[in-house]
């Protein structure tokens, strides 16, 4: 399988990449390529211009301790993230979630920025980005802007990254509470049929703050506000986890495909939410 023909570019700076995007309307950025290339081989994407970010790796591949948050360059690979002691210790939900993406070879190539800018509704990383309240740094010819996770994912393969913009950095707040990502893998592709990320803090026997996000179930990852409201400030018990998790798909039309119909997918989300809440509590 070959992709359709395209003109190849490999810029040496973010500014040059932005200029190339602005000059060539039908263009796509490629990072690790593990989401885009399969799509191009299926001819579901046929960009006329492909702008390879390989020469920007030395610039945009990093994990920096910034005091209250960790700054991760958009071209940082899953393997770099899953093997970072800083991320494992201060953003455990991200380390765990990316360790469940694809397989060893995919995690060697796939990048965090590429994945979330692609925004596959069955991708794992958006769940961790939402649950950890990360902030995305986006650059265009007009300068930089930041976008909160809650405003970043905008539906089916849609994000806040607009035409002529590049996702440069992901800022993940440090978090010392408990967290867990629970996923049901599609047995062939490894993508999430459903996945739930939970971050919570303990306040004695009660749940303090909590964030819950769901991927694989809707046209994009989302925060499960109903689950969060049912947990916040409450005394923890497994019964509470189960009753709160029942709100995991409130207001959501669950996706359907030949592998999982909406009812099954919704039930998976609720079950995984319950498991993730209990696991997060137990490691808080």
């Amino acid at each position: 399988m070959y992709p359709a023909k395209f003109t190849y570019h490999a810029p040496w700076s973010v500014e040059e990449a932005i200029t190339l995007m602005n000059e060539n309307e039908d263009s796509k950025l490629i990072a690790g390529g593990h989401s885009l290339l399969p799509t191009m081989k299926m001819r579901l994407a046929t960009p006329a211009h492909l702008i390879d970010m390989k020469n920007l790796r030395s610039l945009l591949s990093y994990i920096h301790d910034k005091g209250d948050h960790i700054a991760i360059g958009s071209l940082t690979t899953y393997h770099q993230i899953e093997s970072s002691s800083l991320v494992k210790q201060a953003a455990a939900i991200l380390a765990q979630t990316v360790s469940e993406v694809g397989d060893m070879q995919v995690r060697n190539m796939g990048t965090l920025g590429g994945s979330i800018a692609h925004a596959d509704p069955a991708g794992d990383p958006p769940a961790a980005i939402l649950a950890s309240n990360a902030t995305m740094v986006i650059q265009s010819s007009g300068g930089e802007r930041t976008v909160a996770a809650s405003d970043f994912f905008q539906g089916f393969f849609e994000t806040a990254v607009g035409a002529g913009e590049i996702l440069k950095e992901i800022r993940v707040p440090k978090f010392s509470g408990g967290s867990s990502y629970q996923k049901f893998k599609h047995p062939a592709s490894g993508y999430a049929v459903a996945g739930v990320a939970v971050c919570l803090t303990k306040n004695g026997g009660n749940i303090g703050g909590v964030s819950v996000s769901v991927t694989g179930v809707s046209d994009g990852a989302y925060r499960a506000n109903g689950v969060e409201a049912a947990l916040t400030g409450q005394a923890f018990s497994e019964a509470l986890a189960a009753s709160a998790a029942a709100h995991a798909i409130d207001g959501i039309d669950a996706l359907e495909d030949p592998f999982a119909d909406a009812a099954y997918r919704g039930q998976l989300a609720k079950t995984l939410a319950k498991r993730a809440i209990i696991a997060a509590w137990n490691n808080a």
Binding site: Y8, I30, G33, H34, L37, L50, D52, Q105, M109
Partner: peptide, 15 residues
């Protein structure tokens, strides 16, 4: 040095 699936890498990217 990294194991990758060479069906999902452009030769151009491996230049």
């Amino acid at each position: 040095g990294n194991a990758v699936k060479s069906c999902t890498v452009l030769a151009a990217s491996a230049d």
